[in-house]
Simulated scan of single mutants.
Amino acid sequence: MPVLTFSLGPLETNCHLYQNGTDALIIDPSGHMVDILTEIKNKKLKIQGILLTHLHFDHVYGCAELESFMDTPIMAGKEDIEISDVLISSAVRYGLPKVDEFHPVPLAEGIHKFGSIEVDVRHVPGHSPGSLAYYIKDENIVFTGDVLFYRSIGRSDLPMGDFELLAKSIREKLYTLPENTVVYCGHGPETTIGDERIKNSFVRI
């Protein structure tokens, strides 16, 4: 399997490890990284990118840990970076652990190469202003964070959320992918674009 998913942190947020040969990506390091780091060590993987779908606190708990010993940049949407204090500090308001400081760098929409891995980065605002989805055409998979879930969508009632913008992002940036594209979500099980087009009661074509 090219994707391993670990549910980490106080909200059981999915952290995905994508592998292409010995090159790999970490998407949303959401908690203590010991199991993922063991996998990386055992398979002798080279982490080519640490990609954040957005900067809500539950998706970034493991970032400081990775930053402390990896020189791989942690990348996120610039709109979220600009308001990162608001997005990350909300953990304390919910009575959850504080996120240790880390330093993300902006990643623009478009095609990017991470070692041997080509990623189509798609800006999908609505859940947060800088939400990004990561489509890997060679595998026909997409990582959607909290924008699109199995039979559901992300919340738009959080600070700077916008339901109309979220629905537009899903229709124009995700539902336009091939219908057999496997969707790896920020919470819960994977799904497919085709199933969500038909069965997702929140946003349909």
Rank of each mutant, 00 (worst) to 15 (best):
V124R: 00
Y18L: 14
P189K: 01
N200G: 09
T72F: 10
T13K: 10
L8C: 14
E164Y: 07
M70L: 15
S201G: 06
G9C: 04
H32F: 10
K168T: 14
L8I: 14
P104A: 05
D71R: 10
G62N: 07
P129K: 07
R155Y: 08
L165G: 02
D28M: 00
P106Y: 01
P29V: 07
R197Y: 12
V182Q: 13
H127S: 02
A76R: 04
K137G: 10
P97K: 06
E109W: 03
F163Y: 15
T181K: 06
Y175V: 13
I40M: 11
L45I: 14
V92I: 15
K78R: 11
D195A: 11
M160K: 10
V105L: 10
V60S: 05
Y61Q: 01
V183E: 11
S156D: 11
V86G: 03
V121Q: 08
Y94K: 07
G126Y: 04
A91M: 05
V147H: 04
P29Q: 01
G77E: 01
D23M: 09
V86M: 15
H59V: 08
H59C: 09
S169D: 04
G21Y: 13
Y94I: 00
P73I: 09
F202C: 04
S152Y: 02
I88D: 04
F202H: 08
L55C: 06
L177R: 13
C15S: 14
K44L: 11
E172A: 09
Y18M: 03
V105P: 00
Y150G: 01
S68D: 11
H112P: 00
L11R: 13
L132Q: 01
G126F: 01
S90M: 15
F202E: 00
K78D: 10
L55M: 08
K78M: 13
T192V: 11
Y61S: 02
I81L: 04
N20S: 15
T72P: 10
L132M: 02
I83Y: 13
I198G: 12
C185W: 13
P104L: 03
A133V: 07
C15R: 03
E172H: 05
I88L: 09
K78F: 13
D138V: 08
T176E: 06
I26Q: 04
D80V: 02
R151G: 06
S128T: 12
S131E: 13
F114K: 01
H56L: 04
S90I: 14
V124F: 00
L17H: 10
I81R: 03
V183P: 06
P129S: 09
Q48V: 00
D35Y: 12
I26K: 03
T192M: 06
D100E: 15
L51E: 03
G9M: 05
Y94N: 06
Y18R: 09
P29I: 02
T38L: 12
G9L: 02
G95A: 06
D85W: 03
D85F: 03
V99M: 00
T38W: 04
G21F: 13
L66W: 14
S116L: 08
N140M: 00
V119A: 02
A133T: 10
L158K: 07
R155V: 09
L37I: 15
E139K: 09
L177V: 08
P125A: 04
H123L: 09
T192S: 12
V147A: 11
C63S: 08
C63R: 06
F114H: 02
D80Q: 01
